[in-house]
Write a protein that binds this DNA or RNA. Structure first.
Length: 274
DNA sequence: ATATTCCCCTGGAAGC
DNA sequence: TGCTTCCAGGGGAATA
């Protein structure tokens, strides 16, 4: 379940491996959430050099010379690998991109919630139209307690649902929302509009802190997430409440509970989150 | 307008 | 052993 730290980890590895390489074409190997027009992608990007790989929210952008780019989202089970072209394809490989020199960039996705598609950028460093309406990056200066406070006015949706909304702030998924709210000592079910300014400041700071720590550990592997080389992240060992219903709260010794908010399982400690 | 529910899809775990 | 049921959840669409 890739959230921002997992996507960031994948992006850094992809950038290191792909920068400077020449894409030869694109092959679609199965249906995804959005279709890959392999013929158009091959025409548009074949023979072009990969300039860099970058991230916006949980999206991955592979930039080429010119304004054509590949936009990808890992959904729940998406993975990139770089295999030698002769290696047999994996059962869940959904797209393949042969590279000059014999390797092949492969996108694999058991549950097909993700996608890779061809997009056009308005300018070489810009973002495609479908990413225009996203909220601020949580690790940027544009994101702070004040951002959250302003957006929460009049919102009675639970604070956890609110911070997972990509309009509020991007990249915070189910795992890190629970973790950040626990670290900030805030009950995830409270209506967003009910939080005080100092609580928003604390929450914004904890969102940044938990995401930064998770990036340092290469993300969290709960069940599906893999790094580019097939390895696991390390932050799952540092999780304090996510997936720990019935366990002991590391802050206050209380008992971690689980509930559902916005259709998602939510973990919190009723004794120190209020 | 916001809030809630449902759906996409598959594999793994749990229950019987 | 093998079958059924439940669950994971990003994101968008449909519904209230």
């Amino acid at each position: 379940m890739p959230e921002l730290p997992e996507v960031e980890t994948v992006v850094r590895a992809l950038d290191a491996s792909l920068r400077g390489r020449i894409l030869l074409g694109a092959v679609s190997l199965g249906k995804l959430r959005l279709p890959l027009d392999a013929e158009a992608a091959s025409r548009r990007l074949g023979g072009r050099e990969i300039l860099r790989v970058r991230r916006r929210a949980k999206y991955i952008l592979i930039d080429f010379t010119g304004k054509g780019a590949l936009l990808a989202h890992l959904g729940m089970t998406g993975r990139f690998r770089i295999d030698s072209a002769g290696e047999p394809r994996h059962k869940h490989d959904r797209a393949a991109f042969p590279l000059l020199g014999g390797d092949e960039l492969r996108y694999s996705d058991a549950r097909r919630f993700g996608f890779v598609k061809l997009v056009e950028l308005p300018e070489p460093d810009g973002f495609p139209a479908e990413l225009e309406r996203l909220g601020p990056e949580p690790l940027s200066r544009q994101f702070s307690g004040r951002t959250l406070l302003a957006g929460a006015a009049g919102r009675k949706t639970p604070v956890k649902v609110f911070i997972m909304d990509q309009w509020t702030v991007v990249g915070v998924g189910n795992i890190y929302a629970s973790e950040a709210l626990h670290a900030a000592g805030i009950d995830p079910a409270r209506p967003a509009a009910a939080l005080a300014p100092d609580e928003w400041a604390r929450l914004a700071a904890e969102i940044k802190a938990v995401l930064r720590r998770a990036i340092k550990q290469g993300g969290s592997t709960i069940r599906d997430y893999q790094t580019l080389d097939g390895g696991e992240g390390g932050f799952q060992r540092s999780l304090r409440v996510y997936g720990k219903a019935g366990g002991i709260c590391p802050r206050c010794g209380g008992s971690v509970k689980s509930t559902r908010l916005g259709g998602r399982s939510t973990f919190f400690c009723p004794d120190c989150q209020s």
